[in-house]
Amino acid sequence: MRSSRLLSILLLLQTRHQLTARELADELEVSLRTVYRDVEALAAAGVPVYAEQGRAGGYRLVDGYRTRLTGLTEQEAASLFLVGMPGPAAALGLTRPAAAAELKLLAALAPDQRDRAGRLKDRFYLDMPAWYRQAEDSPFLADLADAVLHDRRVRVVYRRWEAPREVERVLEPYGLVLKSGTWYVVSGAGSSGFRTYRVSNVLSLTPTDEVFEREAGFDLATHWQTHLDDFEARRFTDTAVVRVSPALARRLSDLSATLLLKAIADSEAVPDESGWLTFELPIESIGNAAEQLIRYGAGLEVVSPMALRERLLAMSGELVRLYS
């Protein structure tokens, strides 16, 4: 543990040029006394580190000194894909390995390359959750990540949308996917192929020592894209003809109404003499479409099917009775 900390101090000074004892203590989450002892140990080992006094002082390395002791540990190497993504790294329990891997990568770069990398880090930030949504609470995410890394089965109690709501499952976690702030685990399902589970719906998890054999040639990114394509194909099974007012059409981008915008673009709808756009809209079901479309009020009219018009009329009547 101490040797890792000493290396971290050395790499921090190499990449940031000068740091105070307090800054080092905060970075490493240790006491000032520990920092003083560690710096003395580095100096005793022959590392040319010295302290500059004064208000703008701090610890520095002799100009030109560089170390090549930047080898990554197994866990740091595994966390490389999370460098620059503090939120997902923290959720997976890999904050420290990701930070250490980033530090070692920066230390291995030439000064001008390190400066460019630093500018990119300071000027670009990835925020995963969508607007108006908080990232979901997934208390078993770190356990699933560990099982993914070591190809171990886990036993879970899972809450699904249909009865019975709570079911027990044995998962073979091939990979984790983060989509719009929501984590999903892709699990092997024997002859059935693969199944996808929402991590926030895992109610309990029991690790096992059972190792499963991964399917040869499995690619997580390719599988996920295929899963999304299949989901979209199964999701929209019908269409509706709708009309959108000019006022609503101008606000669709602000409302993040991506389905309506895509349907308008695909249909190449042209405004009529009143400025309204008429086009076909893919829908999942009458009930789902009614719940989604009623939010647009009088700015959107369903032309067909009649069952959807009648469902919207009934919902509107319920609102009128409620507020009358």
Rank of each mutant, 00 (worst) to 15 (best):
L6G: 01
L176R: 09
V156K: 00
A145V: 08
T67A: 10
E168K: 03
R311H: 09
P111E: 01
R311D: 13
R155C: 09
Y50I: 05
M315A: 15
R243V: 09
R123W: 06
F194Y: 15
R152E: 11
T196M: 06
W183A: 05
R198L: 15
P88I: 02
A147L: 11
P164E: 01
V62Q: 15
V47E: 14
P139S: 10
S192R: 15
A247F: 07
T15H: 06
A145W: 13
L144H: 01
D266V: 00
D112Y: 14
T237G: 10
S79V: 05
E166K: 06
R133K: 02
P282Y: 05
D115V: 14
A257C: 00
R169I: 07
F231I: 08
L260M: 10
E310N: 09
L319K: 07
S316H: 13
A249F: 02
R5H: 06
L259R: 10
R311T: 10
L322R: 13
A221S: 14
V185N: 12
E23Y: 01
A240M: 09
A51R: 15
G54I: 02
R250K: 12
P282A: 05
S79G: 11
D115Q: 14
V303T: 10
E166T: 04
V303Q: 14
A145R: 13
A221M: 07
G297Q: 02
E291Q: 15
L281F: 00
A51F: 15
T237K: 05
T70G: 04
A130L: 14
S187H: 09
L308M: 07
R68V: 03
P139Y: 13
F124K: 10
S316F: 05
V302H: 05
L92Q: 08
Y174F: 13
L322P: 05
D143P: 07
E29D: 14
D151M: 11
E74A: 15
L94S: 03
V211L: 13
Y184R: 11
R22G: 12
E136G: 02
G287E: 14
T226E: 12
A135I: 04
G193D: 11
V202C: 09
V156M: 00
R2K: 10
G188L: 08
E301M: 04
P97S: 01
F124H: 08
V83G: 03
L252E: 01
L248Y: 08
V320R: 12
L261W: 01
G54D: 06
E136M: 01
T67K: 01
W131A: 14
A45Q: 14
D151A: 12
G299Q: 02
D137L: 12
P139G: 07
E162Y: 04
L28D: 04
W224K: 06
T237S: 06
L109C: 01
I283V: 07
R152K: 10
F279M: 08
W276C: 07
Q14F: 09
E76K: 09
R251I: 03
L141F: 03
R22T: 14
S204L: 09
Q14G: 06
L42T: 12
A249S: 07
L281T: 01
T239I: 05
V320Q: 08
T226Q: 12
G299E: 02
L13T: 08
D143N: 13
Y36P: 00
L261Q: 11
G287R: 08
